[in-house]
Structures are given as C-alpha cells and as structure tokens.
Design a protein around this nucleic acid. Sequence first.
DNA 1: GTCTATAAAAGGATAGAC
DNA 2: GTCTATCCTTTTATAGAC
Lengths: 198, 198
Amino acid sequence: MIKDTRARIVDAAMELFWLKGYNSTSIADILSRSQVNSGSLYHFFPGKQDVLLAVLDAYRDGIGEALLKPAWAGIDDPLERVFALLRLYRGLIIDTECEYGCPIGSLALELHEADPIVRTKLAENFTGWVNAVKACLDSAASRFAPGTDTQALAEFVLTVMEGAVMQARTYRDVAFFDRAIAQLAAHFDNLKVKETVV
Amino acid sequence: MIKDTRARIVDAAMELFWLKGYNSTSIADILSRSQVNSGSLYHFFPGKQDVLLAVLDAYRDGIGEALLKPAWAGIDDPLERVFALLRLYRGLIIDTECEYGCPIGSLALELHEADPIVRTKLAENFTGWVNAVKACLDSAASRFAPGTDTQALAEFVLTVMEGAVMQARTYRDVAFFDRAIAQLAAHFDNLKVKETVV
DNA sequence: GTCTATAAAAGGATAGAC
DNA sequence: GTCTATCCTTTTATAGAC
C-alpha cells in the first residue's frame, strides 16, 4: 500500500528534521525524499512551519505505537517499564553511533523564536511522554514511600533522559547516558519503601 | 576602552547564537550588531563556522569569570556552591521570562552534522562545567558516603540542569526547573553520610 | 585592517497549465 | 491533486580600492 502524498511529506519531514534539524532541512530536501513536487506540498501545507506542526502531531499521536509498544514488549512490571523505555533510548544511541538526539528535545532547543503554536505542540509531546511514565509510577504507587510525588518524579525521568541523551551525543559516548541512568536508578531506590528482606 | 574588531564580532555572535541559534543567525546579523563590515569579518575569520569556534572558546575560557564567580559570590560551602550555580540558571530563566536556553546545550542539539572540531569544543565546555562541580563535590567528600562517585554525580548535575532548562523553556514555566532541582537535592541528601543529630 | 559593491548560490513560496 | 517553471529574498562569501 502506497501512502498518500500528505503522509509521505510528513514522514520525510519527520526523518529529515530529526537527522538535520528544522532550519537545516530545506523544502527541496523534503520534496526530494518524499518524491513529491513543490505544487503538491503547497497544496497540503501553507508553508514549512505547517509541515513542522504536522510532524509534531505525528510524534504526539504515535507515542504509543512507535515508542511505548516496542519499549514495553514482554514487560509487565510498571517500574521495569520506566527503565525499559530508557533502554530503548540507549538502543537508539547505540544504533546511531551516539549521534541520536531526541527529536522533540532537539527541536525545543533549536527553535528560538518559535510561534506559540509550535511551542505548545512541543510541550504536548513532553506531556504525553511524562504522562505515560507517570501512569507506570502510579501503578507502582505501593512500592514508593507514602506521599511520593509521581508527577514530579515522572518529569524528572524526562529531565534525566534529555540531559543524558545530550551528553552522550556531544561526547559520542553512551557511557555518559549510562552513568546518568544509574544515578536515576539510585534515586528511585531511595524513594521506595524499605522492604523487609524475607 | 573600545574593544577591538575581532572581540566585537565574537561578542555579537555569542549573543546572537544564544538568542536565535546558529543557523538562524546570519553573517549580516553579526555585522549589524557588531558594527563591523563584511570585509573585516572575513579578514579575521575564514567563515561562519570559525566564528562559532571562537564563540565556543570564549564560553570555555569565560566560565570562571562570567559564570562561577557571580554564582559563588559570598558562598563558601562547596555543596551550597553547587546549588548556587543552579540558582544562577534559575535567575536566567526568570530574567528571560522562561525563554532561557543553555547556549552550549542548545548548540549541541541544534548542530546535527557538526564538524568534529565543533563537537569537541562543545564537549570541552561541558567538561569545564562538570569539572567545576566535581571540584565542589570533592571538597565536600567527607559528607558523602564512602565510595561516592563524584565524577558521575557532577555529570548528573549537568544532566539535570540541561533537562530542567529544556522543560522550563518549552513550558515557559520555571516550576518545571524547580521540581527537577528538588529531585536532585533529594538525591544528594540520600548520598550523604547520615549525621547523628546533636 | 577597513570599506563598498557584488557575485553566486540556496531557500521559501507562487503561477498557471493540466 | 499534480506538474514545471520561475520569482524574489536571503545568505555566504569574495573582489578590489583605500
């Protein structure tokens, strides 16, 4: 099944924005990769920024199928799922020889004078990711000390992932990612209720 | 005292790259802000990327005077200094109405097909920052549990700062930064030796 | 070292036939 | 909805006089 023109444009733009960034991706790049002509692109989108908005919608709507489902295949324990998600990012770092950057995080820092609607959609993507992690934490609520703020902790998982990916990419060394995740794991352990060893 | 031409170019580029990003800053922007003519810029620099390299050198060489000195004025305790540095970033977020982005982190994610020399200089900047934090942690070594990895912990401080700045900027809300730093502080507390209350 | 003018290319977007 | 051709602006970089 051949995808329709609009979908081909969004797919191509999604990949190019990730590989090269938004400003370094030209309309010509998108046309070339999607095998679409200029007139068709401008038939579907008023301009380049609108392609970006469609890409951000695609990321937001695809978080379940494209990110969480593969990360969580065969894993049921909610806390293991949090670290399985982080392991998926580790795999992306390895697969890209440490050039991987989170597409949302990279766009969030690249776009300086972003239209409010762009910024809002970036935030929506972060929120979707954090909500998925928070749901895991809430499912494991009994294992955390009473009063643990799962919202703040879920945000912190994103914080650490983004900062860790940034350093692994800059140093081209996954060990920076691993050390950060190890620190996060230690923090998690300290928030858990102390179990009596059987 | 009027700065020489080269310094004016570097100053202007440093500010513009921070405000708009590298790709969105044109040579014309730099010329306009520095009040320099095209011929002069190309007399000092072969091209735009070489201006970037000079900017990255300036950040690296200025970390003490421009960042640590103001952050640490009047603060002697090494652990307090770590969080004072983070408070400085909080001030930058507030002062910019939550548009602040770490100039090094933003460039690290914006530049996708970066020349190795650019990437190396970005890493040098991270290393300088982490080394300053690590020196604080080592000065307070007696207050951490034996065997605490101060290198990994210093890297983690950078990880959290970068991830926290990214979210505060994307949501335009400093509370995201504050919550991340609170989590980091809790992690620090858990690494400390348990003091007997007097 | 500095100045103006300009080359040469790339980029976003549009026109109008089909 | 799609096609080709093209306009117009921006951008990096250079030329050559002073």
